[in-house]
Design a protein around this nucleic acid. Structure first.
Length: 623
DNA sequence: GCAAGGTC
């Protein structure tokens, strides 16, 4: 029997073929240069000895679009909520499809090896539809679906031997997402371009696009910017006291601060009637600084943005190159727990030759410094956390500067996850003076452990506290009533933006960087550097869009993350079989249609917001 | 000239 296996990308096809084929594989080219065909034999329990061709696609095999009659300018944008949708293929996708169709003609069975996530399930359906064109005997019911989450040998063999079926619910969920994103994205984008037409002619704005991820992204940046702009500093008062015992120790007020000056003055005067205070509690406890969790895409991007000032897009691109060259594992992952089968020590072993961290790696293996990694709670069931798979000598001139940084970061992070937590001892002393309570704390770092390799973080001992005893009467050395002012929040950094998007389900690990880049290109937000600090601010247009849409008071805000989150929940309901695709699609389309109608009706509100900001230009730092 | 999601 002939079996056609299709993976989501060539790298998976290659690895799976290597495992199933057991070394006897024939490789041939396909019409598309990134896809190869691997031929071998394998004994499937239900099918017996089979001639297998393993190939792949390269992500989605098709896209969605509107028919010609609904192209830009040929219909009013609102029509797109009910327009028919056609499946389209790019030239590259056609080449890939051609390969599968041809291979399908001679195959009796199709086995899907796409990633085990929602999109993977849909890609599986795309593959099935193409293979069916070559061979009508192939149906969704007789198509096999391999279930695997990583490429460990026994796991892959089990996946080949115990296939299941494609999950129609997951396929429906993705179809719903694609349809909604297309209808809402295209309709609002065309509408907004019309609204801003006269500014486009003046070259002030380019395409004014709407996307269910773009707007909330801009919304986060605008939100922070406004909080800074609208910030009013408030004066506060606090007691600042010190005690002398051998040396001077400062104590902080448990009330922290008061915004009522008179109340603070009264308390201060009451306390000043006492010359001494009493030590009411002494507590020493071990203190731990936790090592990092295994590395996800989002954490990689946050780290590279924070420590190397790299953009999210850039760090992912670099990690991808390192993955293609075989140095790093697959860099798009949500998983922050290592699979049980992963041989951590073998991976550490590969880092021994390094002139900088080789000694540390050796210490982990030969000493007693190795410690079981922490286990995060996220698992995408498709890819392990990012880790080095092969040694790269970054001290040689071959690698680029950014490759060196990213590789070193991944290695140090990986070694840190396999190290012990940092340990310290903290002491807390409570003091009562008159009616008020104060405290002082000291930290002694005892063992740096992972911090020896994870140079991006630090943990320092504070000045040691004197030896106080319980109920000890101590003389107050100094006592002052001081005042200060609250300060505004800082401008949002790309790191924070990534974290906000991740936490609110805006985009995926693979697309968050793309969305940030897109809203930069659309000139909704601007990257700024001041005093060597990089941050993001909204542009005039970005501010106006967020303000304008907020002023419309839509039932479901387009600039906040809730709508997208809502859609995510609806998609999950489809996956779980709780809701039907058509119902969700219909409900959501109606919801957007209502917002769209109001936006069209009150488009002057959006335009006014823009004109208002343009007039205010000059004294603003926004462009 | 439109979306977001895959991947090279």
């Amino acid at each position: 029997m002939k079996v056609l296996c299709v993976a989501e990308k060539n790298s998976i096809a290659k690895e799976v073929a290597k495992i199933l084929g057991g070394g006897r594989i024939q490789i041939s080219n396909s019409p598309y240069k990134y896809v190869k065909n691997y031929q071998f034999t394998f004994n499937f329990p239900q099918l017996g000895n089979c001639d297998v061709t393993m190939t792949s696609v390269a992500g989605h095999l098709s896209g969605m679009d509107f028919p010609d009659a609904y192209k830009w300018g040929r219909c009013s944008p609102g029509k797109l909520f009910e327009a028919p949708i056609v499946i389209t293929m790019s030239d590259d996708q056609k080449k890939i499809a051609q390969n599968i169709e041809r291979l399908g003609r001679t195959a009796q069975k199709l086995m899907i090896w796409t990633d085990c996530d929602r999109e993977g399930e849909y890609i599986g359906k795309e593959i099935l539809d193409v293979a069916r064109k070559g061979n009508p005997n192939i149906t969704i019911d007789n198509t096999l679906r391999a279930q695997f989450s990583h490429l460990e040998r026994s796991h892959v063999l089990k996946a080949a031997r115990e296939p299941i079926k494609l999950d129609q619910n997951a396929i429906n969920a993705v179809e719903t997402r694609m349809e909604l994103d297309l209808r809402t994205g295209a309709s609002f984008t065309r509408f907004l371009c019309d609204v801003f037409q006269k500014y486009k002619n003046a070259n002030l704005v380019d395409v004014v696009s709407y996307g269910s991820c773009q707007f909330p992204t801009v919304g986060f940046v605008v939100d922070r910017f406004k909080r800074i702009k609208n910030f009013v500093p408030e004066e506060f008062w606090y007691l600042d006291i010190s005690v002398r015992k051998g040396k001077i120790t400062r104590f902080t007020w448990k009330k922290n601060r008061l915004f009522d000056r008179l109340a603070a003055v009264v308390l201060y005067q009451k306390c000043m009637e006492n010359e001494k205070g009493t030590i009411t509690n002494i507590k020493s406890s071990p203190s731990t600084k936790w090592k990092p969790l295994p590395l996800t895409t989002v954490e990689l991007q946050k780290g590279c943005s924070m420590y190397f000032k790299m953009s999210a897009k850039e760090s992912l691109e670099v990690a991808e190159k390192l993955y293609q060259k075989g140095f790093l594992s697959y860099p798009r992952t949500e998983t922050n727990v290592y699979p049980k089968t992963m041989d951590l020590k073998a991976l550490i072993d590969k880092q021994r030759p390094d002139q900088v961290w080789g000694e540390y790696a050796t210490g982990l293996l030969d000493g007693d410094l190795f410690d079981t990694p922490r286990q995060g709670k996220k698992n995408d069931e498709a890819h392990p956390p990012i880790h080095p798979v092969n040694y790269l000598n970054i001290h040689s001139p071959d690698a680029t500067a950014t490759e060196k940084k990213v590789y070193e970061f991944v290695v140090r992070h990986f070694l840190a996850t396999c190290s012990k937590n940092a340990k310290g001892a903290s002491t807390n002393v409570d003091l009562t003076w008159g009616t008020e309570k104060f405290s002082a704390s000291g930290l002694q770092v005892l063992e740096l452990n992972y911090l020896d390799i994870y140079k991006y973080q630090s943990w320092k001992s504070s000045a040691e506290l004197p030896e106080f005893t319980m109920n000890e009467q101590v003389k107050i050395n100094s006592a002052e009533l001081k005042s200060g002012k609250t300060s505004p929040p800082q401008h949002i950094t790309e790191t924070e933006l990534i974290a906000l998007m991740d936490a609110n389900g805006i985009g995926t690990d693979a697309t968050i960087a793309d969305h940030i880049e897109k809203v930069c290109n659309r000139q909704y937000i601007i990257k700024k550097t001041e005093r060597q600090k990089k941050f993001l601010v909204p542009s005039t247009l970005g501010m106006a869009l967020v303000d304008g849409f907020e002023e419309l008071n839509l039932r479901n805000s387009l600039t906040k993350p809730f709508l997208r989150k809502n859609m995510e929940e609806e998609l999950k309901a489809i996956c779980d079989g709780v809701k039907r695709k058509n119902d969700v699609s219909h409900e959501m389309v109606e919801l957007y249609r209502e917002s769209f109608a109001l936006s069209v009706q009150h488009q002057n509100v959006i335009l006014n917001a823009y004109q208002r900001y343009r007039r205010a230009l000059g004294e603003q730092i926004i462009a």
